[in-house]
Design a protein around this nucleic acid. Structure first.
Lengths: 159, 159
DNA sequence: GACCTATATCTGCATATGCTGATAATCAGA
DNA sequence: TCTGATTATCAGCATATGCAGATATAGGTC
């Protein structure tokens, strides 16, 4: 009996994969925010890209990818629909012609502002439901995980 | 000055999107776990699917999708590579021919066991680096976000 | 048994994301 | 200045994920 419980405990450990938990939560919460943002036509990811640009415009693909914790190639793909829809413009950096300078267009700025109100509603709902302190604490924990230091430490322990 | 700080605070608020933080952390940690799992050829998502099957085999597409917090259509796509590689088998439920019964194959079971050791290393690294208590606390928080009750409460507050 | 409704999947389309090899441009030397 | 190493992107391929419309099957009703 005791042994069985220990075994069951061992099994349960495998349910508690931090990565899988993060992915599940990411899927669930993304769906909720996406529904909230739907009226403006942006997905959470797209809003995150435009929002990052608002803070650090103009940005190169590499800078943007690093800020969003994304692969540069993946980001290049993701930018295409946004460029196609006229929310951002991609030009060549005159100082380094390998690099691109990515900027919000006036249309993109307007769309982002339009999304702000919807985002605030969603975020407020999240904080109310989960608890303001819990939310703050969660975001702090996630910030650590997102940091390059964490990834560096993780990889070092591979040796 | 005070006004400027308030404005900056308003700007910063938009950096603190819970959904975007989750997505960034999910990307980052997935990359770390995927590297750790690479020797066995499974991605974190694939291991999560096989692991869920190990716990609740056989499962229908709908059951599996619910357990993984995924859209059923999306899961159907994601299963194809795993079926193609012989890790799982999809049959028709004789009791309800609309439904599918998904099971691990012996090859899938072996592959999953092979991945267990790699996963444990990654998980241990995560817990060591982030802190055992912090990790436990994070997973508990994520479990709440993943729950259907949270999603239901979020949507209700839409009214 | 025909019919209407609810349910489980499937299909096709679109975006999200990552990796690898190719290409272009920069830069530090020889 | 030519070359080799480095860097920023791109292009192509594969998986991940979601959604809407189509299809098949169950179940209940007249």
């Amino acid at each position: 009996m005791r042994a069985n419980r220990d075994d069951a405990g061992g099994q349960d450990q495998r349910h508690r994969c931090s990565c899988t938990s993060l992915r599940k939560a990411s899927r669930r919460i993304s769906q909720l925010y996406d529904v909230a943002l739907a009226p403006c036509g942006l997905k959470t990811t797209q809003r995150a890209i435009l929002g990052e640009l608002r803070r650090s415009e103009p940005a190169t693909l590499g800078q943007l990818a690093a800020a969003l914790v994304m692969d540069a190639g993946a980001l290049a793909h993701t930018l295409k629909p946004l460029e196609r829809d006229g929310y951002l413009a991609i030009g060549i950096d005159p100082n380094d012609r390998r690099a691109r300078l990515i900027r919000l267009t006036p249309i993109g700025q307007a769309k982002l502002i339009e999304s702000d109100a919807l985002w605030e509603q969603a975020q407020h709902r999240f904080d109310s439901l989960f608890g303001a302190a819990q939310s703050e604490s969660l975001r702090a924990a996630l910030t650590i995980l997102i940091s390059g230091e964490f990834a560096a430490g993780f990889e070092v322990s591979l040796s």
